[in-house]
Design a protein around this nucleic acid. Structure first.
Lengths: 236, 236
DNA sequence: TTGCCCATCTGGTATATACCAAGAGTCTGG
DNA sequence: CCAGACTCTTGGTATATACCAGATGGGCAA
């Protein structure tokens, strides 16, 4: 079935977006223009675009158009080099926006950390950009006893760094869960994409050296914005 | 935009597939039947199905139909508990098929391991099933000097286990790269899905304690078949 | 200069329809 | 009894068309 026309279309569009001279500022021509140029309908053309989107080569911004995706960001969720630092280290421009902070219970965090359901957490919700593209929306829930005046600080930087420096915490036991998902409405809105867009979810549960619960967080990434890269030095 | 009909459809279908009594053997009614039942066209219905597919709730098998997806498999790519073992431990039925073995150069493996491009590798290509559903297609390239008679063994089990037991190797330095992808034609065929289906790619590069290159492998998983779960016990 | 409105562009959603190709089961002739 | 052909069902691909809703930018009015 490789003789489907939309697959040929996909190939030709792939060639097109790999040609840096094909168009300016990484924006593809409109669907209507492309459909006409390739003598097909928008419906078929959109199948080809969806393929390339799945490959991570292009992405859409709500009703603005299709764009060539930049290279994926290398990201190691087991470390906390600080978003700003590792984005810069890869020659990109980081930005962080805090969307919300409050203190309230959150049953999923409580369950992950083994605490009662009605236990409150310090909650930070933020959105992060690479080169002005929103790529990630995350929520962090911190056990208040571990970091009492947490919410009085600044959260555009590294949270783990603060936990270490301001409260002397060691983040010794870390549990990671990672899977592909469809981005939910709330996160989709924050990221400026349609609900249901392909995403990658990263959840972390952190305990300190005394096995006391410290933090739980959920990151929702655009699926084509990142490549998880982990280096391990100990034997199996 | 939550008033789009296909999103309501998605919700109703989600309810439907969560009802264990709705239909037998996890097979959804045909697209034509569903479209008629919900008073819409196949085109719109397929949008809703695509949403649920993105959420990992259903999957399709070539031209056979749509099926409710079983729970994701927990998988820790940093360990080698052995596929058969951890699948069984989660109450599922594993199976492994060896598709191909040979010895030949493979530039990507050579690059990852820091070897000359024309250096040959022992190559194993296999496909793995959970409850008779093909969920994973992988290729392994092993440095022949590390495991000379590798290809004379049996490869339906744990490769790392063999490397340790038959050649006394320690898999000390492991580099992981993980990202979402569109499954390529060859892997898609092996998995019985359409090319371009959403997948998750896991690449590992392994060195032994003396930093000698040992192995490079690529796994291509159906995106909704797994949840990466990693436990880390050392401090950041 | 500034702020608003509106025309126009974009992708998003939807209907109706047609034919193709592969899977699965049945029927039939050896 | 079995193999092969035939048929029916399935999802896969494709055309043509229409209208909606958000983004954008130009132009006009205060």
């Amino acid at each position: 079935m490789s003789d489907a026309y939309y697959l040929h279309l996909t190939d030709r569009l792939r060639d097109l977006i790999q040609d840096p001279e094909a168009f300016e500022d990484d924006r593809l021509p409109s669907e209507r223009v492309l459909a006409e140029r390739f003598h097909t309908t928008r419906v078929t053309l959109r199948q080809a675009l969806a393929q390339l989107e799945g490959e991570g080569r292009i992405h859409r911004s709500n009703r603005r158009g299709w764009f060539v995706s930049p290279p994926r960001l290398d990201y190691d969720p087991t470390r906390d080099a600080g978003f700003n630092d590792y984005v810069k280290a890869q020659g990109r421009r980081p930005r962080t926006e805090v969307l919300l902070t409050d203190t309230r219970p959150h049953p999923p965090a409580a369950e992950a950390l083994g605490l009662p359901f009605d236990r409150p957490f310090h909650h930070i919700r933020r959105r992060r950009f690479v080169d002005d593209r929103a790529v990630l929306c995350e929520s962090l829930w911190v056990v208040p006893e571990r970091a009492p005046q947490l919410l009085e600080g600044d959260f555009t930087g590294s949270l783990w760094g603060q936990l270490r420096e301001r409260w002397g915490l060691t983040l010794a036991h870390r549990s990671l869960r990672l899977y592909s998902e469809a981005i939910h409405a709330r996160e989709a809105e924050a990221l400026g994409v349609a609900a249901g867009t392909a995403g990658l979810s990263v959840r972390r549960t952190i305990f300190d050296e005394q096995r006391r619960p410290v933090e739980y967080d959920e990151e929702h990434w655009l699926h084509n914005a990142l490549c998880i890269a982990v280096e391990l030095e100990n034997s199996v």
